[in-house]
Amino acid sequence: MIRLLTDLPGPAVATTLTPESIVMLPVGSIEHHGPHLPLSTDLIMADEFSRRIADASDQDVWLLPPLAFTKSDEHDWAVGTVWIGWETLMRTVIEIGESVAKTPARTLVFFNGHGGNIALIQVALREIRRRTGLRTFLMNASVPAGDTEAGFGIHGGHGETSIIMALRPELVSLDDAERWVPDHLAEFDQVKFNGGSVSFGWVSNDFGASGVVGDPTTANAAEGAALVAASVAKGVAALEEIARFRHAPGGEL
């Protein structure tokens, strides 16, 4: 069942939510995703996935409105990207956490659809917990790389395009899709986007003029629907674990 926290009158929050309630905040972005996907790609995924997960979960989940404007300055070269700096986003999510802490709920979950937010939210989890005592968690939309992407399908590629084709097909222009994969980086064992021992700084047009990092030409709605279903199932299982997670054995909420 989808429960929107903002549908409650203010006084009802104190009597409806309990310490077992989970407040979930979808976090997306408004950013360039190449010529074939909408600026709202990450926002659509964060909002739609969190709604479906909440609807399928047996937990007492309450959704906040999605946070649209986040740290997506790696795409600030591209017209249409609307972003806020890391200081602004950090302050925003911490202050949201402090607001949630005034409700009876003791658990705050960020459901994130944009990779550029991950490191910042991970820092915020500890800061919110330290300040408020809330149990804080981060869940991320799962978008695996496609077979033709050499592990680099991280932005506007096969997975994201397939998912948006399944969720909002009218917003996808596959005729404008092109393969933009930095194949020359596949030879590196240590310096990688993910899984290597060395990380590196980058902006999205470092790898090509389109700002895409991946191969959307192989995308299809059927695979997108399967990816959505798998992410929802994974999210439901994650919420079940979150609900029973305690930092110490036998610990209180």
Rank of each mutant, 00 (worst) to 15 (best):
V82Y: 12
V82N: 12
W83C: 14
I84G: 04
T88E: 13
L89I: 08
L89V: 12
M90Y: 10
M90W: 03
V93F: 03
V93R: 00
E95V: 00
I96W: 06
I96L: 15
I96R: 09
G97R: 07
G97S: 11
G97V: 04
E98F: 00
E98Q: 15
E98H: 08
K102D: 12
T103F: 12
T103G: 14
P104A: 11
P104R: 12
P104I: 09
R106N: 07
R106E: 15
T107M: 03
T107D: 04
V109K: 10
F110S: 03
F111L: 15
G115D: 05
G115V: 06
G115N: 06
G115T: 07
G116R: 11
G116T: 07
N117T: 11
N117F: 08
I118P: 00
I118M: 02
A119I: 02
L120R: 01
Q122K: 15
Q122A: 02
V123H: 10
V123S: 11
V123T: 13
A124K: 02
A124G: 04
R126L: 08
R129G: 12
R129N: 14
R129E: 14
R130P: 00
R130Y: 07
R130D: 15
R130N: 13
R130W: 01
R131L: 15
R131E: 04
T132A: 06
T132P: 06
G133Y: 09
R135T: 00
T136E: 07
F137A: 08
L138D: 05
L138F: 06
L138M: 07
A141T: 15
S142E: 14
S142G: 00
S142P: 00
S142M: 09
V143E: 01
P144H: 10
A145G: 15
A145C: 13
G146E: 09
G146F: 07
T148Y: 05
E149D: 11
E149Y: 11
E149M: 09
G151C: 05
G151I: 05
